[in-house]
Design a protein around this nucleic acid. Structure first.
Lengths: 140, 140
DNA sequence: CGCCACATTAGACAGAGTCCAAGTCAATAT
DNA sequence: ATATTGACTTGGACTCTGTCTAATGTGGCG
């Protein structure tokens, strides 16, 4: 993730303290924070950073393809820095825990041509839902 | 869809004019309206119906399993009356058109046990994204 | 027909995200 | 090293979705 800042500088990004801090919060591959969670963590590193800047930076990271936007719950979007390895998400219906998972086959191939209605399919997002082991154990 | 009202009466629903109108708006299998679109159409049939009632009714239809909630764009949720046939969604990235589609194989089976992390998987939601024929043609 | 538990209503409220005008600063040129 | 400038940041107002509440209305049973 530290080469993220380098890739961004190569693309003409100005390296500001705020952008560094957002990148730092997103560091790590198994992180799925909301924008507000990212803002809260960023404030601890740089107290004067504003919500608008966090939103701006996340939006730019998403359109550069460095971060993925996932909305698994219809509430706040979450930001996934693991954008360079195709993966899908497994979500616990009870506690909301999220894991990155990898289906065995290319999920796009599973859609027959007759079901594509002439669309050019570019991407697929899959959310598996179920109970995580902890929540399943707590059912009684 | 007209037997929807009958199923609901059997389940103890009170048949009010408002609920009838919401059911009528949802009639048809290829409809993916937002709550506000449903409200706007309902108002044409019953001018005094309120937003809150539309939300209440949709919420009840969803928990009864008569209607599916889909959020394909991170913005307003859409309500899909085609809840009795398992299906997934194909969305145009440009105009937002939505089609119901049916993958060839059971999508849950495509997730290997080693990728389930002990979760009990109950459901899967898939969104295929791409350009519809019209938008692809309009690219130039 | 009358009752009353269930429905509906309007509007206030809340969460998530966007927009804007004014101020600040990173990177380049001098 | 300093000046310059356009990109970046800020805070607050604003929009959009959706939820909640207290007051009012009504479907369907007895």
């Amino acid at each position: 993730m530290n080469d993220l800042l380098e890739r961004l500088r190569d693309r003409g990004w100005r390296l500001t303290a705020q952008r560094r801090v957002v990148a730092q919060v997103l560091d790590g591959d198994h992180v799925h924070f909301t924008a507000d969670e990212i803002h809260a963590r960023a404030v601890e590193l740089l107290p004067e950073i504003s919500r608008a800047t966090v939103y701006n930076t996340l939006g730019e990271l998403v359109s550069l393809g460095e971060v993925l936007e996932v909305s698994t719950d219809g509430r706040a979007k979450r930001y996934d820095p693991n954008a360079h390895h195709a993966h899908q998400h497994l979500v616990c219906s009870s506690c909301g825990a999220i894991r990155d998972v990898h289906p065995a086959d290319d999920p796009i191939a599973a859609l027959p041509a007759a079901e594509r209605f002439g669309f050019t399919i570019a991407a697929v997002e899959i959310t598996y839902r179920g109970l995580c082991p902890d929540c399943a154990a707590a059912q009684h």
